[in-house]
Amino acid sequence: MSLCKAAHGTIPVMSQTHADYRLSQLDQLEAESIHIFREVAAEFEKPVLMFSGGKDSIVMLRLAEKAFYPAKIPFPVLQVDTGLDFPEVLETRDRWVNRLGVNLVVASIDDAIASGVVIDDGKTSRNRMQIGTLLNAIEENGFTAAFGGGRRDEEKARAKERVYSHRDEFGQWDPKNQRPELWSLYNGRLHEGEHMRIFPISNWTELDVWDYIGREGIEIPDIYFSHQRRVFVRDGMLMSETPLNPMRDGEVAEERTVRFRTCGDITLTGCVESTASTIDEIIEEIAVAKLTERGATRGDDRFSEAAMEDRKKEGYF
């Protein structure tokens, strides 16, 4: 916390003026997000936190921890297991879940395929199959609110999404028919079968997330920091060499010094060459970065200009 009781420049402090109380922008964002977590816990019957293991969902876990301390987080954590997750990410997830003592619900794409919930036609990416798996898990468990780590600075379609984002019985988002959202008065009304996606860090930017991770000193997966890795080039992105993502003709792997800017499906998430090995170095690197984190390293968002909008309408995170 940095509660600055600032004396304003050379202006003498007049008998305890009320201009003295200031909260840094990061503290304001934190306060707003904690407010959202508490509001949802109070008003929804069965919330769940969608956890990918990436930095944004770790920040969400930290905010939830702070919102209810010293009580435990009053809802479980849900992860969609794509079978293509980075092992480092799963390890970090387990450490967080154990430390906080929260319930972990894993919805596996393989199980969803086996039970016929989603169909693997050999053409659909695992990223898209997450949608059916996730919606099925929400329905089966009767979750009425699902926290997501989406940020409005990430992508154009997200810029217009509400903090409380309504989903119909099919899990779909209707961007043209969103509920107005005013002040900090959130409307959580639902009909049977509907659910709400909640985005508590909507107003955070990539830089805010890093600032916060640095300030809080919390653990994130190692792959965000510079390391040696065997990579190959595909579609202009550096992809990890792994049996999960077989190389195609003409692709050659070589060792480079890299780090990841996002944590997604190992077959779609590229890394960037980087020597940034501390949070401060990462922040410095982002400050001068020329590409958005999704544009730089996410195959799933590059397919079309409206890729995210289309997936969101279907029920994506």
Binding site: R22, S24, L29, D208, D211, R215
Partner: peptide, 15 residues
Amino acid sequence: MADTTGATKGTNMDL
């Protein structure tokens, strides 16, 4: 209060 001696600029910025 937690020690947050402005490791980065974001922690001192206002909004």
